[in-house]
Each structure stands twice: as C-alpha cells, then as structure tokens.
Design a protein around this nucleic acid. Structure first.
Lengths: 202, 202, 202, 202
DNA sequence: AGTTAAGCGAGACGGTACGTCTCGTCTTTTA
DNA sequence: TAAAAGACGAGACGTACCGTCTCGCTTAACT
C-alpha cells in the first residue's frame, strides 16, 4: 500500500496544511490593484501585506523578490487581456490586435505592465525576465501570423518577421513610455499598414 | 573631488571654499558612475553623497528628487555621445546614427540611460520628463533629416517621419529593454533600410 | 462491567493513541540542553521543536507557555540534584548542602535554573511560580533541619528559621546572579557558620 | 587658536547637529514607564519608539542592545532613589537603608529593577553588567559603613563585610524575586539586627 | 474486523518585533 | 554664507518567533 494518498489528478497529496488559494489570490490581487492605483513606488511588500491582510512572511515564503511577485500579479490578471484575434486574414488580425493592445496600454493594463517592467529593470538591469515569462509567447504567436501573411501574400513587407513585429510593438511601447502623442487605436492600425504594407484588400 | 591640496608635510591645507561647480560636477559624476557600476538600486542619495564626499544637504539643495538628479547626471555625461552625423545623404546619416546608437546602447550609455528611464517611470509613471529633457531634441533633428530624405528622394518610405523614427528607435529600445537578440550595428543598419526603404544608391 | 479500561496503577486508560513518553522526554531534554548550551534567548519553542524533532503543535498541546515548559524541563533534570544530606547533625547537614548547592550553581544546574527564573520574571514579573513548584519544598525541608538544630543546640543563632535560610541561600543566589566573587563551596561553608553560629563541635 | 570650539565644561563641541537631550530623555523615560507599567515583555524597542515618538533608528544609534538601554533607563530614574543615610551610627544607618530599600522594592523601583536584571540574565546569562554599573558602587559604600561599625563596636558581627552585606541584601532580593512573605521594612530592620548583631544602644 | 478517538509531524498562516537601511529635513560648526 | 557633519522621524526592508490552524498518518481502545 502506498504511504501517500494520490489525488484524482495524480498529484501527490502533501502532508501539512495546504497552501491557501485565497491567500495567494489576495496577494496577487492586492499587488495588481496597488500598482494600478497608487503606483510602483507605493507598491511595497508592506503595503501589499496590509492591503491583502496577509502576513509579510507568507509573501516572502512564496516569492523571492518584489519583481517576481509583481510579474506574477501582472500575469494573473492580465494574461486574459489582449488576446490575438483568430479570424480574418493575417494582416487584419495583427491590425486588430495592435489596436486592442494600444487601447489596453492606455488603461490599467498599460500602467501595471510598465510598472512591472520598471521594477525588473531597476532590480536586474533589464526586463528579460518579463520577456521570458510574458512577452515571448505572445510575440511568437504574432510572428507565426506574420509568416502566414507573408506566405499568402496579404503582407507585402519582406523583412524578417521579428523585425516587423518590433517595428510595430516597439513603436507602441516607445510612444507609451515616453508619452509621445498620438497613441491611439487609429495610430496603431495606420502603423501596422505602414510596416506590413498589406495588400489593398487585406 | 579635488577640493584639497596636499602640502609637503602631508597636512591638508585649505585653499578656500570649493567652488559649487566642482561640487556639482562631483555629484553628477558620482551619480553617473554609481548607475553605471552598481546599478540603479544601489545608486541612492546616501551612496552618491558618500561617493562624492558631498553632504546630502547640498544634493537636496539643488535637486528636488532622485530622478531629476539622475537625468542631469545622464545629460552631463551622455550629451556628447551619439552625435547625429552631418555628412552623407539623409538615409545614410540615419543608418550611421542608428548603428552608433546601438553600439552605445550595448555599453555604459545604455545601462545608465535605462536606469534613468526606469527611475522616472517608477516615480512618475512614465518617462515623459526624460523625453522632454533629452529625447525630444534628438528626435526632432532626426525627423528633419527624414523629411529631407523624403524630399530629395533618398528615403522611399512615405509614412509620417515620427512613425518612421519610432519604428527604428522604438525597435532598438524595445530589443534593448527586453534583451531580444540580435541587437547589433548591423541589425540597426538593416532595420533602417527596412523601415526607410532608401533608394539603391543611398 | 466498567466501560473504560483500568490500567495497573489505577489511572483510566483513554481512548485513542496514548501520549508518547518518548516525545515528552525529548521535548524536556531538548529544552534543558538548549538552555544549558545556547542560553535562554536561543531557547525558543521553534528551536526546541527543531532540536527534538517534535512539532510545535505537540509542545503547545501539553504546555501553555514557555515558562511552564522550561520549569518542567528544569524539574525533570534537576530534581535529583542537590539532595539534602540525611546524616550528621543539623548544622553540618546544612553546611554540606550549601556547599553542594554552590558547586551545582557553578555548573549547568545554575545556568539553567537562572534561565528558568529569568523567564518567569520576564513573563509574569516574579518567580513565584518557580518558588511554588520547586524552591518551596526544598526550603521547607531545610527549615525543619534548622528548627531541629535550634532545638538540639547545634545551631546557636536564634533568628527565625526562614530568616536564617534566606540569609544563607539568598546570599548564594545574590552572588551568583551578580557575579560577586568568591562563590565557592568553602565560601558557602563559612557563610553557614557565620549565619547559623553552630556550636564548636558541630 | 584652537580649531574646535570649547564648551564651558571643557568638552569639545562636535560638528553637525548635536544630539537632542530631549529625545534622549524621552527614550529613557518611556523605557522606564513601560517597564513599570506594562512589564518587560511589552517593553520592546518598537513600543519604546512609539511611546516616546522617537524613531527606532535613533534608539539603535545610541544603545547597542535592549539591556543597555534598560540599564540606562533604570539608572537615569532610580539613581536618586534609596540614598544611604549619613546620620546616626553605622548599624542604624544600614537599618534605615535596608528598610527604605525594602519599601522601594515593593513599588515601581522594585518592578523595574527586576525587569532590568531579568533582561540582562536572559541576554548574557548573568546580571554582572548591572552589578558593575549600579550595585557595585552602592555595595561599596555600605561595606565602608559596616567596617566603620565593626571598628567602633556598634556592629557586633565579626564576619567579612561583604558576607554581612550579602546576607542582608541577598535575603531581601531573594524574598522579592520569589515572593516570599513577609517582606516589609520591619522585616528588613529585624534582619539587619539578626545579621549585624548591633550593640543594644545602636 | 471495523470504528472511533486521540497523538503527532508537517507545514501554512496572521501578527509582531527584530535590527538595518534610505529618505528628506533639520540644526549646528567650520572655512 | 555656503558647505560639512550628522541627528532625527518616517517607514520599508527581509527574518524570526509566536501561537493557531489544517492536513495526513499512526496507534490504541471500543464496538
């Protein structure tokens, strides 16, 4: 007989009090809310603990550093935002996505994302971790779409997909970080057309 | 900061009150050095005061906040870096500038610039101040060059100059922040060609 | 028929898993060892649990507070130490006991006893509990001996037995707590003679 | 000409903002008050800082540890208490002093003194520091008085002065720590007579 | 043999103090 | 009269222990 119980999904049941999902959620939610409302400087571990009614020890138990927590808080809340469209031809998909992304940038999503990136930069010197844990996947998907568009002819630009992607999303990010106007869905759509040079009917 | 002369017998002879310019320079130099070597997190006002042998009071007297000081420290050291070329046709000028800028990004200049931007973002939520005090001027000059290129035909791309600029420099910045490879002078030159579509002889 | 089993010694056997004697012993032993070796400040409940491989829950189940546990740990180990001699005349008995007690004070016994007393004082403001659970009984026995000595004339001092006892053992404790030298068996024997003024042949 | 200003009392004036006497006093007063009212366990550095409206940094700047602060707090408030009488013959002086000391023991003084001693014991294993910084001087003075009494014949006991002192004050301390009754000025006077055996007219 | 109750280790958790750090302000001496 | 030296209140840092609370497993007495 096995000395440890197996749960239905095959994971081994651990001894001891199980980790509280409610606590974890409260921490992530508080971190996100504080970033969105009070800004990065006020989003201290102490403030998160106070806001979520969780002890600091519990936070430090599960996250090694503030940037790790902030990334998780962002991922937890923002992952479902800005999905890549699945209908329409590749150029149109990207155009819609860039517009939606721009709209998100102008709201809470943008504020929090930039705070997380800033935290990573000030702690580690770059935002590579953020790229690996969040951006990379999304970029890969858009890259595939660009490749498809180049294949089916809906995208006229012949540059490397990564270069095209960065020209679009790098522009949006650049304008957002430095407050360069305009930065609107219409600007984003126009930018996509400029960079990808889609066929007239795309 | 060389505010003290050494006499033969080793005692320190005061030559009178150090010039405030010397003190200012020492503060800016220390801030820059600390950002470049120990990173943003360790570049505290206390550390700058210690490193420059200046009292904290003097620093607070002249700068209202850390980001203001860091911007000045960056401007003081980095203004002379990455000058816009004045020879060659417009497309070639930008190509050379983008390559030079990329090279600078990969060194001390990039590290410090990103630290300053990060500080602005974490304090104010964006890097607008940095844009106004540094980027804006440089961007304007390049924009003029792009306009010239579009007029004389050396630049084939017809988009708004600002859009073209952001596509190039936004891409470079984006790759730098997120550590996306490759990021080299060759990549920059290629990117300029992709975005500006210069005539074959440019 | 009895609904509950009776063990040999008349105690009622409880349902469920019986309390583990080994665990109890391990806790008390660890508490004593830690007090003797690492000092009171390091003898935390957590440290005792770690050292004895017992969970904190088990400790808190059986002892309501740290001072209660430390007293028990002391009693468990130290009760058998420093027995009152039963041979010789009363004055000689006390003289030998004071000397033995002094010797014990200078070793592990003294260190642990003082730690326990200190813990009681810092938690409750005095060491009355320690007196009630440990000192009182021993003092009573010595008091009887003093009374006997005063009756049979071997003790010349006419003061109240309690006053004589405290003059002797209070002196020893006082010197121990404040590190006043000398504090040796010889000093103790001399002190007993000074306070009790035994007849020459005692 | 001196390069540093000399204050009236001959101490060298230091550069920079001078230490605030009010702050120091507030810290010591708060520490004393908290010990007397809430007990040792509640007299944390945090609590002292809160109660005195002083930052923890300032406390840690001037005292290396809690026991050091508590000793100073006790000395600051209690030094003037329980002065040795200067009139009357030696035996009578000590009798009065022991009675006064006992009275003090039963009030705030006793509570705080015991707390300080307990803190020293739990941190360092003994109260030697307290002896060196407080008790020693007082004991020496009483010892001189005992010597005088033995010389002029007012004290009949021939033991070493230190032994006699400890028999008296050790008894009082012992009774206080362990809550042994009675502990009153009358008891103290009687104890002095028992130990010192003064001549009838003393 | 199966049920039930308690003991016990593992470990999560909120609370609070620890001792240290930087911030930004304030007060004094010195050149 | 500007600068240094440095005290100071505020409050975050990351760690430790407190005492409580699930959990899963074990051990016995009672059905």
């Amino acid at each position: 007989m096995a000395s440890k119980a197996e749960t239905e999904d095959g994971t081994t049941a651990r001894r001891g009090r199980p980790r509280s999902a409610a606590t974890t959620a409260a921490i992530l939610q508080s971190a996100y809310t504080l970033m969105a409302t009070t800004g990065l400087a006020a989003t201290t571990i102490d403030a998160i603990a106070r806001h979520s009614n969780v002890s600091k020890m519990t936070i430090y138990k599960w996250w090694p550093s503030r940037e790790a927590l902030l990334i998780d808080a962002f991922l937890d809340q923002a992952s479902r935002a800005v999905p890549l469209p699945v209908t329409g031809n590749p150029a149109a998909q990207i155009r819609r996505h860039a517009a939606t992304y721009t709209e998100a940038l102008l709201g809470e999503f943008g504020r929090v994302q930039l705070a997380v990136i800033s935290e990573c930069v000030s702690k580690t010197g770059s935002a590579e971790i953020f790229y690996e844990r969040y951006l990379n996947l999304r970029r890969s998907r858009v890259l595939e779409t660009i490749v498809n568009g180049q294949k089916d002819g809906s995208i006229g630009a012949s540059g490397a997909p990564g270069d095209l992607y960065d020209a679009i999303y790098g522009s949006l990010f650049y304008r957002y970080v430095f407050g360069i106007k305009p930065l609107t869905p219409a600007y984003a759509r126009n930018l996509v057309n400029l960079v990808l040079r889609p066929n007239a009917d795309a």
